[in-house]
Simulated scan of single mutants.
Amino acid sequence: MIQDLKKLFGSTLEEELLLEINQVATYKEISEGNKILEIGEYIRSMPLLLSGVIKILRQDHDGDELLLYFLEKGDTCAMTLTCCLGHTKSQVRAIAETDVSLVMIPIRKIEEWSGKYKSWRNFMFNSYHNRLNEMLFTIDTIAFLKMDERLLLYLEEKARISEDGIIKNTHQEIAYELHTSRVVVSRLLKKLENLGKLELHRNYILMK
C-alpha cells in the first residue's frame, strides 16, 4: 500500500504523513457495482481512493437517485469529510463504478493531521473545492441545460471513465442517475445516434 500512496501523493504529501497513513488506514478492494456507503449510515472513516472510480448519488423522498459526481484515484469525498467531522449520518450513497482500491482513514486522524501537516490541510481544502465545483456543475446542468445536453455530457464522462468509449449501463440505469424516465432516455439516445454522436448496441453504448 505504501508504494501506491507514494505514487499518488509523493509530490504533495510528506513522507512522514504517508507512513502514518500506511500504519493506521485500512486497505480495501471493492468490486464494480458494490455499495461502499449508504444514506443514513454513520461514517467512521474517510475514504482515499487509490484506483478505480466511485459514483456519489443523492436520493429524494420517492427513492429516485441523482448522480452528483465521480471520485477518481487520488480523490476523497467532501460529503464524507463533512459527516466525519460533524459526526452526522451520510446524506449520499457511494457505489463502485469500476473495481476500486482505497484506504479508509480513521476520523480521529483527520483533525490531528490537519494541525500537524500543512500538506494535509491543503489536500482537505482542495478536496472541498473540487467537490463543490463538481456539485455546482451538476446544479448548472440541471438548471440550464436541456435533457439531451445533460445526457450527452453524462455519456461523455462515462466514456472517459471507461477509457474505451463503451458504456454498459442500461437505459433504466441511466434514467435513474439523471433523474428522468427510461422512455425519455431511450428517445434521446436514438436522437444522438442519428446525429452521429454514438452507436446503440444490444448491451452497450459506443461513443464516437
Score class of each variant (00 low, 15 high):
N122Q: 07
N122R: 04
F123S: 02
M124A: 00
M124F: 01
M124H: 04
M124R: 11
F125G: 02
N126Y: 03
N126K: 00
N126P: 01
N126A: 02
N126Q: 10
N126W: 00
S127T: 10
S127D: 00
S127L: 01
Y128P: 03
Y128N: 05
Y128G: 05
Y128S: 03
Y128L: 15
Y128D: 01
H129S: 07
H129C: 06
N130F: 07
N130A: 09
N130H: 06
R131V: 11
R131A: 14
R131P: 01
R131H: 14
R131N: 14
R131M: 05
L132D: 01
L132M: 11
L132A: 00
N133E: 04
N133R: 10
N133F: 03
N133A: 04
N133P: 06
E134Q: 08
E134Y: 06
M135N: 00
M135P: 00
M135Q: 08
L136I: 13
L136P: 01
F137K: 11
F137G: 03
T138N: 03
T138R: 14
T138Y: 07
T138L: 09
I139W: 08
I139C: 02
D140E: 15
A143I: 11
A143K: 14
A143P: 07
F144P: 07
L145M: 12
K146T: 15
K146E: 15
K146M: 14
K146P: 14
M147L: 15
M147F: 15
M147G: 11
D148G: 04
D148F: 06
D148C: 08
E149D: 13
E149V: 06
E149H: 09
E149L: 08
R150S: 10
R150D: 06
R150G: 05
L151Y: 13
L151V: 12
L152R: 12
L153D: 05
Y154F: 15
Y154H: 05
L155M: 14
L155D: 07
L155C: 09
E156D: 06
E156Q: 12
E156V: 04
E157Q: 12
E157R: 11
E157G: 07
E157C: 03
K158D: 03
A159T: 03
A159V: 11
A159C: 01
R160C: 03
R160A: 12
I161L: 13
E163L: 13
E163Y: 14
E163T: 15
E163F: 15
E163P: 12
E163D: 13
D164M: 09
G165T: 10
I166F: 12
I167L: 08
I167N: 06
I167S: 04
K168R: 15
K168N: 13
K168G: 12
N169S: 14
N169D: 15
N169R: 04
N169A: 14
N169T: 09
N169K: 12
N169Q: 15
N169Y: 10
N169V: 08
T170F: 02
H171D: 15
Q172N: 13
Q172W: 13
Q172M: 08
Q172V: 00
E173I: 05
E173R: 12
E173G: 10
A175E: 08
A175G: 10
A175R: 11
A175K: 05
Y176F: 08
Y176P: 09
E177N: 07
E177W: 04
E177V: 04
E177Q: 14
E177F: 05
E177R: 12
E177D: 10
L178W: 05
L178K: 06
L178V: 01
